[in-house]
Design a protein around this nucleic acid. Structure first.
Lengths: 234, 234
DNA sequence: CGCTTCATTGAAAAATGTCAACGTGTGTGG
DNA sequence: CCACACACGTTGACATTTTTCAATGAAGCG
């Protein structure tokens, strides 16, 4: 992770777009920008919290390790999102790890300046509170889904989520390259299981896979799988 | 749920303890107090969000339904906690249900006044933001635990959590009465499985159960189960 | 006393993960 | 350019875990 200059023009991250105008100069002085290479870690589980990151460009996975070789991808972060906010509570240690999935640029402010910002910049505090409320809602929704949904449905849901989050490219493929390991970690299933279910989906013409690109060919059926699993409750 | 007078003296809920002094009169005028009977629902999944609740006394479960007959208990709320905040994001519908587990008193403010509070009362917004950050951290931790931990460990963890959250009574039993259904929903396992594992724990003198009281007799072993499952990662 | 509800238990089924093997490519050093 | 090792995708068989189902027993209640 390398510090860079001028990567950010104060207009496309959560911090800047949610700050009052006259606080921007202060941000400009205090912020740092970083460039992160694909596959590089931004922080790891257990690292002491020193500051908070805002994603400017790129994509990042937020994950939690399990038993040395398994992991669960909690969520993805994309431009406009926040990283490292879970360390803001009482526990001064990051509870999750974050890794760039493609070249990523970040805006960073240290905890001290972050606290000043919260005190001065009420618009930001408010926006942050709302952001957390949303994240919490998503997290609890996801918790229930992961706990109760069968594997097939979880994988269908994962694919739908990815498309919703990252959109599709010109060819119609989900605009995100993930290793198969990552895909299975996101759906919270073993790699082999993920593979087999995916084969089924391909057989049934619900998705198409070429290399690392995934195209949803029949979103309606995938959605129906998920809906049926929910039994009418969302 | 019945409205009551004078149930709250402005000093023991999240709202009041985190507000600036001169905002308390306004709260006093706008707040409502409710008494909820054991087993009664405060709001249900899908209900439109009208306001936010603060637990004054009692205990509440926050749960999400699944397929008409299964549910997952997301978390518990006790005095000082907040209910209904997940509706604060963009989605104006409660994503979870809340049900009183014993006679409970609540403080309630409607959304309009809540928004005014946020605008005026920055101390409160700040505290709320911190609260959400903590909740989010717990939620993500719990998500990973529920996904990766085997049943036995999940149940051990559930018991330890309950003790940590609610403490013990004079006899040393966990200070909370839950139906066995609720217990299994909290550990995210089927009722029968919960029962069988619990029997094992009793055999091995790790817990004792009399009626609805549960006593942890060997917390260290339960904790070790959980720690081992985590493989050194917290 | 009969009925309903809940607790308890065992057996069977279903879902998922684990393991090992095989093939296919891909890069490297000779 | 070839041979080899190595990583990774792919697959099937198998083991394990967990749930589901059904039967039985116990307990409360009109």
């Amino acid at each position: 992770m390398k510090e860079t200059k001028d990567a950010c023009n104060l207009n496309n991250c959560f911090l800047c777009t949610n700050s009052v105008k006259d606080w921007l100069p202060a941000i400009s002085t205090h912020k740092k920008n970083f460039a992160v290479k694909k596959g590089e870690s931004i922080f790891k589980e257990g690292d002491p919290v020193k500051g908070i990151y805002f994603v400017y460009t790129g994509k990042v996975k937020v994950h939690k390790r399990w038993n040395n070789d398994k992991e669960l991808i909690i969520r993805f972060a994309k431009p406009g999102d926040i990283l490292g906010h879970m360390g803001l509570g009482n526990n001064p240690v990051y509870p999750v790890a974050t890794t760039a999935l493609e070249p990523t640029t970040l805006c960073y402010i240290d905890l001290a300046f972050f606290e000043s910002t919260l005190n001065v910049n009420h618009k930001f505090t408010y926006a942050l509170m709302k952001f957390f409320a949303d994240e919490l809602q998503k997290s609890e929704q996801r918790m229930r889904n992961l706990v109760h949904m069968p594997v097939k449905e979880r994988i269908a849901l994962a694919m739908l989520n990815l498309k919703k989050m990252f959109g599709v490219d010109a060819a119609g493929a989900i605009n995100m390259e993930l290793t198969r390991q990552d895909l299975s970690s996101y759906a919270a299933v073993s790699y082999e299981t993920w593979f087999k279910v995916t084969q089924d989906f391909i057989q049934e013409k619900m998705i198409a896979v070429t290399g690392k690109s995934i195209t949803l060919q029949n979103e309606a059926v995938l959605q129906k799988l998920v809906d049926d699993a929910n039994g009418g409750f969302e």
